[in-house]
Design a protein around this nucleic acid. Structure first.
Lengths: 337, 337
DNA sequence: CTGAAAGCGCTTACAG
DNA sequence: CTGAAAGCGCTTACAG
């Protein structure tokens, strides 16, 4: 493995000059630069990142805690997110370091340790929970971070974030359903304790009101778990109580799949008799039949913004609170043919 | 941020002694050790990993290339795998570094670069393909790696691997179905070009023969894509051609879900009229109704073995080719009630 | 059991 | 535009 020193000897310049050739090429005379570059290639030289990091005290590594899930709960878009995050990090010359940590405040010593030992420069948080304690903790410790997702039920956000406008997404789904002739649109939701659920629900309610559609309490159903069974059961209750329902906006693809199953069981055709939409545009959406209309989070953009915020020094006038618009992907479950 | 030097000054010993307190505590007199330990805690000292790595030229980081998937293809157990891999790495004092790379041999410069710049000590490969070029390339470059999955259609494996006995898993599924009274067991597979598919298929065939069950060519159906639609279509063809089929072993959970859908469509009850099994025990398996019997890969053990092989110096007599047995998780789709 | 010293491979003021 | 030198924070023979 060649070192700076060897390259310098080979090119007959000082190590400083080789370093400059790599990090500030404009400082070299073109002929010197070319000579040095040639030696670098010839010796197949690669700067040792550890030496560099030791000197600059920047490791160009970003920590991300791999979520762990209760049994049967899937994170169907995690591979999309990780891929996007990784790509965005690489575009800025960085990489993602994965780690595990206990949920909540118990996990914070792990974050602190990784940062103190200089394994990472900062963190990307996700799976933000209502009253998530991590953000405030990291802020207090002055450890750099950015959050994918707002901290719900806080008056002010405890740090920079990127998030998707769930209310906007659900409102767009309602408008699409209205345009295609639906007039009694139900909402399949999660428990009230979820800030995420309340956000999305509010989008459904606002859009329905705007369009003069009903928003009876009975049209908004809560599922305790994010499973197909729960989605199917809630749909059954909904249709039993109110046979006039002609569309269902589900807060997740999984619940939407449950709705589709219940429709099939009743001999109804999704997209014809009752329209259904999901959320996340997970791989499942395009794999069922009819394919599921779903609200897609712009993963690449999310990842780019996260890395941008984390790696750009705070600039007055540049907001570090960014709300992105999701995209409604229309398929057969809401628009047959 | 405290340094070794500061801790040494505080404890009134040399830096060497502090270093020993951390890395070889048995070398210190108990009272010295205690004094040093106290100073470490008091100053909240954490060794700088970059300095250590520069000195020892080991970064304790393992590279893993995040797979990217064609649209609609999900990797439903990737989060389980990553979580297990991360945990196993941490148990050995290491971490996972994520990166992206082009598929096949085009990606190799990325691997080489990461290793040359000392961002990682070695690699864990997965998503092994038939005639995968990566293994041989890394071996030639003497870059440490271990593979999750054999390289199919090679006579000898080009390096250490951990894999799951797909044939054994499918054979276990067949035996379970036979025990519960099934006598005409079909197999839902992928194209012949997939070594993985041939392995699993061979287990189905061997177990059927052993039990005196039919293995007609018409009982083994190929699906071109791993989608629910394809699984449903193949199941329809199968049942049309051979109404006597009373069980289906599917090579993936997705295809199994397709089979379940087709059974429902025909008014048949999965687990009663026709038994169905899947592969991977993905989160989907427990989310459908009836829940899906599936062949579970032992992710924690896989991850532990991978990290063990990668971090243990080659020892004569210790095999670095490890084939693990999957576990059949029995649910309603093959055993109602 | 403990200490003084060299060196891992870089970057960066500073001087010429 | 280029070079000599210090130093980032560790580990590790070596000597006492």
């Amino acid at each position: 493995m060649a070192t700076l020193k060897q390259v310098a000897a080979h090119a007959e310049v000082s190590v400083q000059t080789v370093s400059n050739a790599l990090n500030a090429p404009h400082r070299l005379r073109p002929d010197t630069l070319q000579r040095v570059t040639k030696s670098i290639e010839l010796l197949n030289y690669r700067p040792n990142r550890n030496a560099r990091s030791l000197r600059t005290s920047a490791v160009e590594l970003i920590g991300y805690c791999v979520p762990s899930w209760p049994d049967g709960q899937a994170h169907l878009v995690m591979d999309q997110f990780l891929h996007a995050l990784c790509t965005a990090a690489e575009t800025s010359g960085r990489h993602i370091l994965l780690f595990t940590a206990p949920v909540g405040v118990e996990g914070m010593p792990v974050y602190e340790d990784l940062h103190a030992r200089r394994l990472v420069d900062g963190f990307v948080l996700s799976q933000t929970e209502t009253h998530d304690p991590r953000h405030g903790w990291l802020k207090e410790q002055q450890i750099p971070f950015v959050s994918f997702g707002r901290v719900w039920k806080e008056t002010t956000q405890p740090g920079p974030y990127v998030d998707v406008d769930g209310a906007g997404g659900c409102a767009a789904a309602v408008r699409h359903l209205h345009e295609t002739g639906r007039r009694r649109i139900a909402f399949l939701s999660w428990p009230k304790t979820s800030g995420l659920a309340e956000d999305r629900l509010s989008g459904w309610r606002a859009a329905c009101r705007e369009l003069g559609l009903p928003t009876d309490a009975s049209l908004a159903v809560r599922c305790l778990e994010d499973t197909i069974d729960q989605g199917a059961r809630a749909t059954a209750e909904l249709l039993d109580a109110d046979p006039g329902v002609d569309a269902i906006v589900a807060i997740s693809d999984i619940l939407a799949l449950g709705a589709l199953r219940e429709l099939t069981r009743r001999g109804l055709t999704a997209g014809v008799d009752v329209a259904v939409t999901g959320f996340d545009d997970s791989p499942l959406a395009s794999v069922v039949s009819p394919a599921l209309t779903s609200i897609r989070q712009p993963m690449d953009q999310i990842a780019t913004e996260l890395i941008d915020i984390l790696t750009t020094p705070a600039t007055p006038g540049v907001s570090t609170e960014r709300l992105l618009q999701p995209e409604l992907v229309i398929r057969g479950s809401s628009a047959p043919g």
